[in-house]
Design a protein around this nucleic acid. Structure first.
Lengths: 343, 343
DNA sequence: TTGAAAGCGCTAACAC
DNA sequence: GTGTTAGCGCTTTCAA
């Protein structure tokens, strides 16, 4: 920050009036005479006066800044969520500070410290995969900074959350594959301590149960990126009991499965079906294009921002609201067609 | 921002000493007695004191914040650049505020206003496609806020820049396709007012010239996203004079070309070669995988951050430094092999 | 209708 | 070694 910027004092001196008059004129205070107001506003505009938000925040004890912590922005889901957040933020004249934890617990802790120092009004968080301690989240709350979790929520902290309907999303996708004739469906999930993993796994399991399909432990694997998707699929496809479908944690994992299938000469979707999750930008670039579950990420961001603003504006209200965003199965070409007679 | 946070005054009152002593103790000022220092630091730690950065910034007239304006974070190149920026920022204890212009000139102008109000120390910008006026950039400079452009630079403003070596990147990629036997190479570029477009087009043209290939105006098109890549490729591939290769502005465009080719039954790379640009996350998901040009986005971010920090720390120095990041052709499967005898 | 003064949280002269 | 004072840019009593 440089000294280039003009201040209220400068204007006051130049116009031979007091700083408080300038402040009032700029804020359209009705007490001020129209002439003074005009004069000041004209001068301010000409000299491109911009209020110093740090000074304003310090005085008002309200920063109008919302902090956001995401695992990584290179992940299409999170950058899309961010767009939703920013949309609502701009409508309400809030600023957003974004931090990436890069899936690293200690970085996430530092992110939190930064946001506290910046005196943000509230924080939106999707926690890193490696986070299993929650003191840093608690510290925010202890400092009266409300938080809302989204997507990768933290059940250890009692506050509002915005989640994707992971259970139904996975249930529906799994059931769809069952309806197309798949009987041996593998599940490639994320670290089991994450809520999102549990819910999706439950959706998967319940779909199998509903259709009286056996549950095989070997088919339930941890694999949530392309590399792991590739490796895991390769192993499974080479085993005696090979699966005929893969329900994946995200599209990256699904794309890894697809690569493995091609490498082994396994036809998709004839021999195996693959379903991703997210409807991310890569899902239309694979060949065949991925069947996947849209999570409406922008909506997740919007709802999260709405919830946090509510909390910021009504700090006394203790109720914690949650939002569940419905998902939508997008059927493309890595899954088989439904049989005609089922319609 | 809430009133939950403890201040230096609070500590002073509690410990029956003055605020300045507390401040000195916290800052490890050597004048302070070891006992007092211990006492204060212990108390601060226990009560999780966090300095109010707004107050500090206001006082020091230095915010330690760098503003970043990018077209959109959902674009993998920009989110990767941001990672490089944040890496260097964290090393130097700087904070980053990221704004998205979403390719909208007026949003970009608003972004600039926000950053001026936040009194950022400097700004890193990659301009939106729709930006053709530069007063907002000039305003930053008039306010003594240094700026560094990266990737989509603005030639209308005289300041430092970090660019990818678009010319050589495109030249080399085009020449490679020529060496594999392509003779009728189309160029799908971005809006011509952007430097990046001009440089890439020149790289393309010079490669054709060097190898005495004719330049056909019909082969030079504006198409810089998947949809346009698809449409343009479809038209070109259905024309009498169809091209045998496509040099594309980015991987998204290339993926559109690929879809068009498949739809028309044109074999890739046997009948047409396709080269993208960026080595973005989709480039390994297409089938065949895209030949593309790596731009080392993290390096772009790091260099940009280094340049701006230099400017911030030496405001008097007027020299404007530029950095050119070398590119690297990544040969995958949408281009033919070099003939053996050429080696 | 306007000005003077105080204070948000912090630090740096300047005293003692 | 520590306290007092002043001021960063802004707004808001209170007084005139």
């Amino acid at each position: 920050m440089k000294k280039g910027q003009i201040t209220i004092k400068d204007i006051a001196k130049e116009l031979n009036i007091s700083a408080s008059t300038v402040s009032r004129a700029l804020n359209n205070n009705p007490d001020i005479s129209p002439e003074t107001r005009e004069l000041v506003q004209k001068f301010a505009k000409e000299h491109k006066y911009k209020p110093n938000s740090m000074a304003m925040n310090l005085r008002s004890k309200h920063s109008n800044i919302i902090g956001v912590i995401v695992p990584e922005l290179a992940n299409h889901f999170f950058s899309s969520v961010l767009s939703g957040i920013e949309l609502v933020a701009e409508e309400h004249d809030y600023q957003v500070i974004v931090c990436q934890s890069l899936e690293d617990y200690s970085k996430e802790v530092r992110n939190v410290q930064t946001l506290i120092k910046a005196r943000v009004c509230g924080v939106l968080i999707s926690q890193s995969k490696t986070t299993t301690k929650y003191e840093h989240f608690q510290e925010l709350i202890d400092n009266d900074i409300p938080i809302i979790f989204f997507d990768r929520i933290c059940t250890g902290i009692d506050t509002g959350k915005v989640v994707v309907d992971d259970y139904s999303g996975t249930f529906n996708a799994t059931e769809y594959m069952i309806n197309t004739g798949c009987k041996r469906i593998a599940f490639l999930g994320a670290p089991p301590h994450l809520e999102i993993s549990k819910n999706r796994k439950n959706g998967y399991l319940d779909a199998l149960r509903k259709h009286h399909l056996p549950i095989e432990d070997d088919f339930i694997c941890g694999a949530d990126n392309k590399q792991l998707g590739y490796q895991t699929a390769k192993e499974l496809l080479l085993s005696v009991n090979k699966p005929d479908a893969f329900m994946c944690m995200n599209d990256y994992t699904a794309s890894g499965v697809l690569v493995a299938a091609k490498e082994l000469g396994v036809k998709v979707p004839e021999e195996i079906s693959i379903c991703g999750f997210s409807n991310s930008n890569i899902s239309q670039d694979t060949d065949p294009m991925l069947t996947t579950v849209d999570q409406y990420p922008a909506k997740v961001g919007e709802e999260a921002m709405n919830l946090i603003l509510e909390k910021v504006n009504n700090p006394e209200k203790q109720e914690r609201k949650n939002r569940i965003i419905k998902t939508n199965l997008i059927i493309r070409n890595t899954t088989k067609q439904l049989p005609e007679n089922e319609e």
